[in-house]
Computed example of a mutant assay.
Amino acid sequence: MRFQGYRIVVTGAGRGFGRSLAIELGRDGAELFLAARDFQAAEAVAETVRHLGGRAHAFECDLADPESVRDFAATLGEVADRIDVLVNNGAPYLDAGGFLEADDAQVAATIGAGATGTVLVTKTLLPLLLRSDRPDIVTMVSGCGEYGNHRSEAHEAFYAAKAAQAGFTEVLSKRLRPKGVRVISLYPPDFDNPDPLGPDWDAERGSGDALSARSVVDCVRFAIGQPRDCFIKSFYFEQV
């Protein structure tokens, strides 16, 4: 198995792309530490990975709550003496139908989880990453974090969170490279996310139409599977 022996943390793992990535990395032999705001959602994905023969642990982590992030890191540190890969996937999507339609709480939660939460979870887990001889930080920024992008229907608060992620990962890449930590950012446009356990997962791959989650998963696999002298900082995707 390609990632046998790897310990990989995935945030936002209870649904959507986080779930798809977790299932595929579990099939690749990685030991997974899956975090989600809803513990039961994370546990359901962990159970799916176990049913497929993989190893997975579930944790509760609300990225919009700094105390929850600290508790997650502390609990993780009790069961793992190192992690090899952190995938910053958790960031709530917001489409409130217009800039003025979202209330203040929605705006604060979107930016707090996607921006502050990403910074804090990276900060709190960095000591465990530095104990690995192959540490990678992968952040699912999305095309909304790409300068000049305006094609998504996402709310402006989501754009703000993703722009913050882009700036954070840019400087983090430069500052952590001397420590041997690779910081990898992905900027996909909106993409299809079929069930990785369903028939459409393989059928949609390479169809030439909309980008699929399977292809984005393969980009993550490719990047973390490269030799340590290969630093792939960013993946940008052409939007059709």
Rank of each mutant, 00 (worst) to 15 (best):
H51E: 15
H51C: 00
H51W: 05
L52Y: 07
L52I: 04
L52N: 09
L52F: 10
L52E: 15
G53N: 10
G53D: 12
G53L: 12
G54R: 01
G54C: 04
G54K: 03
R55A: 04
R55W: 00
R55T: 05
R55D: 00
A56K: 01
A56F: 04
A56M: 10
A56I: 06
A56S: 07
A56N: 02
A56C: 08
H57T: 07
H57F: 07
H57Y: 08
H57M: 01
A58T: 10
A58W: 11
A58H: 10
F59G: 08
F59C: 08
F59Q: 08
F59P: 09
E60H: 13
C61F: 00
C61Q: 12
C61K: 06
D62H: 13
D62T: 09
D62A: 14
D62E: 15
D62V: 04
L63W: 02
L63D: 01
L63C: 07
L63K: 03
L63E: 01
A64K: 04
A64D: 10
A64S: 15
A64N: 05
A64G: 06
D65Q: 03
D65C: 05
P66K: 02
E67S: 14
E67M: 09
E67D: 15
E67T: 11
S68R: 08
V69W: 01
V69F: 01
V69H: 00
R70F: 09
R70Y: 05
D71H: 13
D71S: 14
D71F: 00
D71G: 07
D71Y: 08
D71N: 13
D71L: 10
F72G: 11
F72N: 12
F72C: 12
F72Q: 05
A73E: 05
A73P: 03
A74Q: 14
A74L: 13
A74I: 07
A74P: 01
A74E: 15
T75Q: 15
T75K: 14
G77P: 09
G77W: 15
G77Q: 12
G77I: 11
G77D: 11
G77H: 13
G77L: 14
E78K: 13
V79G: 00
A80N: 00
A80F: 01
D81H: 08
R82K: 13
I83T: 00
I83E: 02
I83C: 03
I83M: 02
I83D: 02
D84I: 05
D84Y: 05
D84L: 11
D84V: 04
D84A: 11
V85W: 14
V85Q: 10
V85Y: 13
V85L: 12
L86D: 06
L86T: 09
L86M: 07
L86E: 02
L86S: 07
L86A: 08
V87T: 01
V87W: 14
V87A: 03
V87N: 11
N88K: 08
N88I: 10
N88G: 06
N88L: 08
N89K: 05
N89R: 04
N89E: 09
G90M: 03
G90Y: 11
G90T: 03
A91N: 12
A91V: 09
A91T: 11
Y93E: 06
Y93V: 14
D95W: 13
D95C: 12
D95R: 15
D95T: 05
A96I: 11
A96V: 10
A96T: 06
A96E: 11
